[in-house]
Design a protein around this nucleic acid. Sequence first.
DNA 1: CCAACGATGGTCT
DNA 2: GACCATCGTTGGC
Length: 194
Amino acid sequence: MTYMPLGKKFFNQPTVNLAKALLGKYLVFKNMKGIIVETEAYLYKNDPGCHASRGITSRNAPMFESAGRAYVYLIYGMYHCLNIVSGKKGEGEAVLIRALEPVAGIEIMQKRRKTKKIENLCNGPGKLTQAFGITRKQNNLSLLSGDFRVYDSKIKPEISTSARIGLSEGKELQLRFFITGNRFVSKPYSSGGK
DNA sequence: CCAACGATGGTCT
DNA sequence: GACCATCGTTGGC
């Protein structure tokens, strides 16, 4: 690994900037590595789709911590979603990691995901946490030290923007970002987002 | 190809 | 008791 892990300064940029800046960077957890190819921003102001929009609760408390932590929660009783907390302490903002291009630890991911197909290992928020073995044990963990980090890269991706996926509120906001044309970006489910 | 549905459990009202 | 920042499967064309 020739690149450096990113620190405070990187995570402290405004949430939308961070959501875009994360594209093309490496997410590293233990022996697994992937290139971030799809993110969504969740804001504290005028964003009813954000978990933090109705104030602090026991679930969303990590979102109100300082930038650079993991916020991991259980969704639909069986999957986990990984966010990176951003914004100022007390605001309640985060970036959802929605898809990765697998780089290392692929055999473990294939075993956990019960498929050999590389494109199907990390192309969705519930899939990438399953592939990486990320659960609520990683909730509120700092990415500023230890074996859970974001590494810099030289990749300068072309970025596309769209509405976020799967929300019942805040659907109109254009806060989803992904690398244009990347084949590891999540596929929309035909049942059409609720 | 696309549309529909159930699994499954924590969190919030 | 309702709601979910999801996914795999099923069934029709």
